[in-house]
Write a protein that binds this DNA or RNA. Sequence first.
DNA 1: CTCCAGTA
DNA 2: TACTGGAGG
Length: 349
Amino acid sequence: MGVKINELVKEVKKVVTFENLLNKKIAIDAFNTLYQFLAIIRQRDGTPLKDFEGNITSHLSGLFYRTINFLENDIKPIYVYDGKPSSLKLDIIKERKDRKVEAKVKMEEAKKKGDIVGVRKFAQATSRLDSNMIKESMDLLDYMGIPVVQAPSEGEAQIAYMVNQGDVWASASQDYDTLLFGAKKLLRNFAINRTRKVGDTSVSLDIEWILLPKLLEKLDITQEQLIEMGILIGTDFFEGVEGIGQKTAFDLITKYKSIKKINENSLKVRGKIIDLDIEVIEKVKNIFLNPSVEKNYQSLKWKKPNFDKIEEFLIGKHNFSEGRVKNALDRLKKKESESMQTSLDRFFK
DNA sequence: CTCCAGTA
DNA sequence: TACTGGAGG
């Protein structure tokens, strides 16, 4: 899910185009992206794409085509995978699991009723990434020559570290959590710009660019206060306070400066006094302020794609259409010969 | 989500 | 050439 601070971020977000990102190294939250593909790449009846053996392939389709678009546009993606979740996250993980089971039941019900919209909606909510899907997505990226970084715990924390080290230019995720982890730059809707229809009108989803220092300046709060706001609203590591959304959290932090002070003032929200366990709060804050990250990750290198392996994997193993895959790979090959040409040109100058 | 063939 | 809707696996 991630912390909901979209309203607060609104005023500092900028729109960027693919051209603005030329030759930039962008770290992508792999789980976040794969889940998105899994939820969205489905048929009208809610069934995900599958190969002949019944293995789900929606995530591979999304990953493959989108990554090729990045390469074709001279963007250098790095995929960062989550590792072992913090013990504080386990409650949330269990809750999500329960919700998925619930969604499956609701999907069956909708199916019986012939409610097509409902079936699709609940089917999306059942999306699960298993270890084999994760492994295969890494294999595909490896064949494509894209660097992959395994985070010891939170991928978002790892990305924040890499951004702030200057090893990558920005973090790409739909969640705002990298901001809580302190990443200076965040990109949202990071994909080729496309119009998407909502109802009967089409809306274009721009790539959003958010600078953490700008956000803190605009809100006139510190990084620590941003984290405390996140805790009040709710993050993956703490459920938040019922009745407190982004607006209230911002007002409270602005007025009282800290959760500790908010506690001391016995403030009421929805008739209940806010009384948070400071010890727990400190633990959550510590996850954001001192996260477990891998500092000696492999140097980020983009290798030549192994075209044969990709074809064998997608066409041979997972029943992707030969025409589409070869077409996409041809775009890559063309890109390769172009860049070879420019480096030759440079050499002869 | 992204691709691609059909349409204006 | 730009756009749209249905299919992809």
